[in-house]
Amino acid sequence: MNILIVEDEASIRDVLKSYFLKEGWGVYTASDGLEALQHVRKFKVDVILLDLMIPKIPGEEICREIRKSSNVPLIIISSKSREEDMINGLNIGADDYITKPFRIKEVIARINALLRRVEMFTKENKEVLRFNHNSLVINFETQEVLVENKAVKLTSTEFKILDAFVKKPGKIFSRQDLSYIVQGYRYIGDGRTMDAHIKNLRKKIEEDPKNPKYIVTKIGSGYKFNSILDEAR
């Protein structure tokens, strides 16, 4: 497993690299945004750890650029600790968000949890599901989604949320349930982080995100998936 650390503070970068090497992971490092994009294009990277406040190209722009072509698991690490900053990070495509100062063991645990969910998801999904006369098509093996015959790009977290919904249509999922399913731990808070993921997912698969027909809010309970399954193969 190869991880890319994008961090301009050498002390933080070196400590993370040291611990990751002890985990047996391959490690690439970048100290600025330009170098980060070069590494993404040149090397096979399985996880990206991205600081937002880096020189040359801001982390937010890096995240958006990566999401144009890849759903590689991406975790933001940042000293921006306001909830609005966290939600913005998820809105631009991050799978998780860790604030500084952080504990190394927590970072490693978050990475392992994300990788376990990705691995489990890959092993369990070998089919194609079609909904509403092919208006929504989900290929779980290739992680491709078509909406009205047009491909849409989901992050790995968004895809895992969609997977949970469509495999159990009609089931009400709380925000904590979804956090456990996609991240491997139950988020304790007011739920705005998961709401941000749902909002992004709706923008990509719903005809009218403000009046969704697929992912429906159940006030006081959470969310559920409503749709007509055409076929599975």
Results as ranks from 00 to 15, higher is better:
K150D: 13
F20Q: 06
K213C: 15
V128N: 02
I205D: 15
I215M: 14
K105W: 08
V72Y: 01
L115Y: 00
I77T: 06
E65F: 00
Y214N: 07
L4N: 03
A30S: 14
N149V: 00
S221I: 08
V128S: 11
T157Q: 01
Y187S: 13
M86I: 12
P212V: 09
F131M: 13
K218W: 03
K204F: 07
V216I: 15
F43W: 06
V182T: 06
K42N: 14
K105N: 12
L21G: 05
V40L: 11
D51P: 13
D190L: 04
I228M: 07
R110L: 03
E124D: 11
T122L: 02
F131C: 08
L201I: 05
M86P: 02
E83Y: 02
K167W: 06
K203T: 04
V15R: 09
N200I: 00
L146H: 03
V27A: 03
I188R: 13
Y19C: 09
L16C: 08
D177W: 04
N71P: 08
E7H: 08
V118Q: 02
L50F: 13
R82Y: 10
E158V: 06
L162S: 11
P58D: 15
P212R: 01
T99P: 06
K22Q: 14
G184R: 14
S81T: 14
I138K: 09
K68R: 15
I198M: 15
V45E: 08
A113R: 06
I3V: 15
N134W: 12
G89K: 05
R186K: 11
E7L: 09
L50R: 09
G59A: 09
V45K: 01
D96V: 01
P169I: 12
E119S: 05
V166F: 15
D51I: 13
D163A: 15
I87H: 02
N200G: 13
D230Y: 12
L52E: 11
Y223M: 14
K199M: 06
Y185I: 00
V40G: 07
K150F: 02
V182F: 07
T157P: 11
I104R: 02
I181N: 05
I108F: 07
S156L: 07
N71E: 14
I104Q: 05
K218C: 10
K150W: 05
S179L: 02
K203R: 15
I3K: 01
D163P: 10
A151H: 09
D51H: 05
R41A: 15
P101Q: 08
L90Y: 05
G191L: 03
T29A: 09
M86G: 11
P73R: 06
L136Y: 04
